[in-house]
Design a protein around this nucleic acid. Structure first.
Lengths: 184, 184
DNA sequence: GTACGCATGTAAAGTGTTACATGATTCG
DNA sequence: CGAATCATGTAACACTTTACATGCGTAC
């Protein structure tokens, strides 16, 4: 329902190429909205058809040519409209939890290994987010005010990751003491 | 990648109709894997084609007839295989955060209203999860051991919702003091 | 010389949502 | 009399992932 709108939000701040957008998704926005490069290019095509964005081709000599997209008046209208509507509560689809739920089929060791792998990933993400937070906190007050809302989304990431890791520790300790028989 | 496998996990425990599965998704599993009834029926059709499940029609007089699905040997093999593979880390797509990120377009009041709506929803979910936890904790030790892994997934929900609410309070307080101008 | 960054895309398959469709029974 | 529960599905559309595809420049 809204990679299109996520792209519009980014383009509203500054015109960008598809590649720039992908980078942006990988960094800031990507912590709460994932998109592969293919999908970004697909949606840019559709956004162009909708006339919510336009682009200008920039030819470059030392690098590949690129298309720089910017939001149109129609796009701004659509974005304002989307922003004024309530968004639906987020729905979660977490395969790791399905696996844990059916963990008696996996066996204790398999579960523990898998959990450890995910703990590493989440710890890495948390460190990364915390280093971005340090950058934010070192800004002067003007800039801090300017980036306040994106910072709030960063806080969501940090609080969320900490909670995830807290939960994972609980599961690890529980598994240690538990007797999980591998069924069938 | 895996509504099919979530269904197999449920069918591995007991044969069920599509309707039963939907109920199951709405209750326990649904807190970390969402599925509408249409999708469950679609996937049951595909699972049948794959020969991972079979069904028997049960005609009932006072209620509509139903099809009771059960997992096949082939399905069990597939499930065991899926469970032994590592799952990918979960990717988040959260429209509320996109909106907050672009919140200067929405205006402070709009953001606050939206946040309050979501706080209500998350508080409701948390209460619900905590009441299920109370049920679990009142079981005798045998049953507790039996439902240990599903309980761990419930804990994920509880810890996750608490963290969400903690974050939301932080955002509320921050917004209260902040000066968000509605741009354009 | 190989890996990484820059830069763009198409095609097909898989997954999920929305709209449409039916119809009986039970509880308040 | 209306709403909820039981019970199943089709069709169209929207969104996401995976695989395939190209090619130059720069740094190690």
């Amino acid at each position: 329902m809204s990679l299109k709108h996520a792209i519009l939000v980014l383009l509203e701040t500054e015109p960008s190429s598809g590649y720039d957008l992908v980078k942006h998704f990988k960094r800031s926005l990507g912590y709460f909205w994932n998109a592969k490069h293919q999908q970004v290019y697909q949606q840019l095509k559709k956004l162009t058809e909708d006339q919510w964005v336009t682009f200008q081709a920039h030819s470059q000599t030392d690098k590949p040519d690129k298309k720089v997209y910017e939001i149109t008046a129609l796009g701004k209208k659509e974005l304002a409209n989307w922003i004024s509507q309530p968004v639906k509560a987020n729905s979660i689809n977490d395969a790791l939890l399905v696996k844990l739920y059916g963990g008696h089929l996996a066996g204790k060791e398999n579960l523990e290994n898998e959990l450890n792998t995910h703990i590493d990933i989440h710890q890495g993400t948390l460190k990364n987010l915390e280093s971005i937070e340090q950058l934010y906190l070192s800004l002067d007050d003007d800039k801090k005010a300017h980036y306040l809302l994106p910072y709030m989304t960063l806080r969501r990431g940090i609080i969320g990751e900490k909670a995830w890791l807290e939960w994972a520790e609980e599961v690890k300790n529980t598994l240690k003491q538990a007797d999980i028989k591998k069924a069938d």
